[in-house]
Design a protein around this nucleic acid. Structure first.
Lengths: 229, 229
DNA sequence: CGCGAGCTTGACGTTGTTCAACTAGAGTGG
DNA sequence: CCACTCTAGTTGAACAACGTCAAGCTCGCG
């Protein structure tokens, strides 16, 4: 369920780093040919194992990036919001995605042919620097994730994810787009225990939960729980 | 406990990718100024949190690359052998190491000033490609590690590590440089359970264990255990 | 109105960690 | 040459943490 549309970068509602770099060069501007594609909730934006054909940039909406594990159990690595690159980790010579991305709500993404991206990072130092910077951050956060998932107990992991979501929404109160099951996949906890933890933290007045609306009441305590693990 | 020595690439016993790239350009060859440094067993080659000052390449010996977790519990991500870059994951604008590297046996490494490396990837497309390729592989293997550590039981994780070590040594029989504790850090298992698993697998005739010498007797079964998780 | 997905709760069992005690071997100094 | 100590390895028992199973609930949507 997609709607494709060719677009002109100069008219784009959400101009990205790439435009920022190529805007002064007419030859590049003419070569980009980006496409805007709209995905509905639960649509697959890219699938683990498929070849990387485009650089993908989130223009609007929210998506989950996850790796498919054993027995249909997934691990969500990040929630993607506008200004995030999807293809980032796979730009570099790895021909296939090693993760999947699925829309959590209606998403508009911008797709640029990977050959163009490659030419850009071949020729353009600034682009390369930006990409590398983002890449480095990604890897650092994955490393952190390994520690978190492995060495913290469920309360610590759960606290981590709440803080992550709060930071993502830039607000202590936020609407949880994820289902309980998906929230579980974000912190590697079973769905049932997520439910129990939500109730537990609510009881302890650390958070408030009204259906999908979550409010962090005691951020300090939450950080402490996350650290102690 | 280090011995530093300036070296000339053309005389190096273990010429690396970088030399491969710069050997035809005299201006670069004159600018490299690599240093060979020898580390003894248990010496710290680089420390999590320190700023990245050099590109580091393993010339001889073996080292462990690990992230320092909570309560002094570490997770070993890779065992490094000659031809591996140490600094790889931190080249890209991340100013600090987010992992540590420690020698498992006497190690000789080649250190090149990070400014030279940066200049090289700024100017040299081939170098960039090689680096990115290696980078991509690293990330893919870390992703795999997340799945493994999170979704496999200890028998599966243990089998994984045995296969990894066998592949690393290019032999079904190999001398385990790691202590039981370190082997535990490689697959996120407690030292005690490592001991039990070694005995268990030996009993089941999957492997043979003589002190530090480990021999895989039934590779097929080991792979099955690793897959089933 | 009924169905199904998402959510909730309690009981139960497994897995793997932790603790404590013990052994073997290597290195040290009197 | 023998006590010593220190590290690495080993073993058993107890326990805690989580996941799993089963059952029931709720709410939105066709």
């Amino acid at each position: 369920m997609k709607i494709n549309k060719e677009i002109n970068c100069t008219e784009c509602e959400n101009q990205c780093d790439i435009f920022d770099i190529i805007k002064t060069q007419n030859d590049l501007l003419n070569k980009v040919k980006p496409i805007h594609v709209t995905f509905k909730k639960n649509d697959i934006i890219c699938k683990q194992g498929n070849t990387v054909t485009h650089g993908i940039y989130i223009v609007s909406g929210t998506a989950k990036l996850y790796i498919e594990g054993l027995n249909n159990r997934n691990i969500i690595l990040y929630i993607l919001k506008p200004h995030n690159y999807v293809g980032l980790l796979s730009f570099f010579e790895t021909p296939r995605y090693f993760y999947s991305v699925v829309a959590l709500e209606q998403c508009k993404v911008c797709m640029v042919d990977v050959q163009f991206i490659k030419q850009l990072y071949r020729d353009n130092h600034l682009f390369l620097c930006r990409l590398n910077e983002a890449f480095g951050k990604s890897v650092a956060s994955i490393m952190q994730k390994i520690i978190t998932l492995n060495q913290k107990n469920i309360r610590g992991r759960f606290a981590d994810s709440l803080l992550y979501l709060s930071q993502l929404n830039k607000n202590l109160s936020f609407n949880l787009i994820l289902t309980r099951k998906e929230l579980g996949e974000l912190c590697a906890i079973s769905e049932e225990n997520i439910v129990r933890l939500l109730a537990e933290f609510k009881n302890e007045k650390i958070i408030d939960v009204q259906k999908k609306q979550i409010t962090i009441l005691d951020e300090t305590l939450l950080r402490k729980i996350s650290e102690v693990g």
